[in-house]
Design a protein around this nucleic acid. Structure first.
Lengths: 229, 229
DNA sequence: ACAAAAGTGTTGTGTTTACACCCATGT
DNA sequence: ACATGGGTGTAAACACAACACTTTTGT
């Protein structure tokens, strides 16, 4: 259970914004809360930080409990600490976002959640606590990151087409991009490797498959790039 | 005093990285610690967050106590929460940075500080706790922000020359920039207003003075810009 | 044959970089 | 007269935006 409702004065928690890509839509994993407050409502997953637990391990633990995943892209975004943000007491919360491949994950109920489900990010317009603000902040951060670092590949299968990548970018940025310009720019960065295979069983010209060049990828991750597309 | 050394199990604090510009160098305000641990050492100013205090008000309070300033640029950067980052107990700390005009500030000792002094950022290579890491993170963030928003003007006097601005950018980015290109780009943004005055008493051709166009400035702050110089 | 998505180049426009000399003042 | 920093323009390289048709497959 997330909180001992009696006699806690202050605590820190983490909240996880877990992004996935499905049906060319950016989605976020919400849980149905098992405990009070807001019992039964859809909210961001999160938990108190344990006394002997490094801060960054808390969102990892939540993620693992919820999805089984352990090596996941995880970025700290912002800390929320208004006095009254939590109705039960003083809880300062640190928000993290993650990127997971939605089709490799079978989310399961967890200690703090009776149900788990993916929701389209841009359709949500109310959440308990300050979770909507947290979601917005994480979404903006993702949109910024995707333009300055090669992230987001975590959201795709191992082998993918250039159109998959474009779909991903369009889903994250929530807008249409020019196909030719996108391809030109993306290919020229040199983080994609042609695996010399093609899609099969599609009712149109089969697309080339690519994978990531991890070395270049890491380089870019370190020094960033400019993907103003 | 910053901590009751006995019987505290966990707490959250804030740490302030207060930047100023002096002698064309980027400096940071450090305090000599009054209390244990690391009593007497130079460290980042900071304090515990009070129980009834909004998180963001804590760094404001520290800033006010230390400098007397109340309306100051303040940005949350990152939260540090390794279990052992503080020798006395579990303290999760939220780092903020601020920009202040070093010549308008007469820093004074505070409840947690016996002395206060400006240190050149790029010369520091050791600090207690994880304060060096905090400083690095804040410096990187400042360097990034200065390229994407019109900030940093807080570090300058009200009327200033274009060379002052360039000095500022060179100090923050810690590298030389091309004079003509800098001026061209900066002027073209339209956030500077010619105040039709000139420097006096300088042993060279006196420079034009400028001030900020607050409206445009706020616009840019909202939507950002690209200052890849 | 048709539908569906893959794939491909060029041109105009704007942005970035590199670079060297004269100007106005105080001493 | 000299030292000091202020101030200015151009050309070449590069990046970005806009835009339409052909190819390959499955049905």
């Amino acid at each position: 259970m997330p909180f001992k409702n009696t006699f806690f004065k202050s605590a820190f928690s983490v909240d996880n914004v877990i992004f996935g890509l499905d049906d060319s839509k950016l989605k976020v994993l919400l849980i149905r809360r098992k405990g009070e407050p807001f019992k039964g409502e859809w909210a961001l997953p999160g938990d108190l930080v344990h006394p002997k637990e490094n801060l960054r391990d808390a969102p990892k633990r939540v993620l693992k409990e919820l999805t089984g995943l352990v090596d996941v892209y995880l970025e700290q975004v912002h800390t929320f600490g208004k006095v009254d943000r939590h109705p039960v007491g003083r809880v300062v919360t640190v928000a993290y976002y993650s990127l997971v491949n939605i089709h490799k994950v079978k989310p399961r109920a967890a200690s703090f959640a009776s149900e788990v489900e993916w929701f389209p990010v841009f359709d949500l317009d109310s959440l308990p606590f300050d979770h909507l603000e947290i979601l917005h902040k994480c979404t903006s951060r993702l949109q910024k990151s995707v333009r300055t670092m090669p992230i987001g590949f975590e959201l795709l299968p191992e082998k993918f087409t250039l159109s998959d990548v474009q779909d991903l970018y369009e889903a994250v940025l929530n807008k249409k991009l020019d196909k030719r310009n996108f391809r030109k720019k993306f290919l020229s960065m040199g983080i994609l490797v042609d695996v010399k295979e093609y899609q099969t069983g599609v009712a149109h010209r089969p697309a080339k498959l690519f994978r990531f060049e991890t070395e270049t990828y890491d380089e870019f991750k370190a020094k960033g790039f400019n993907f103003e597309i």
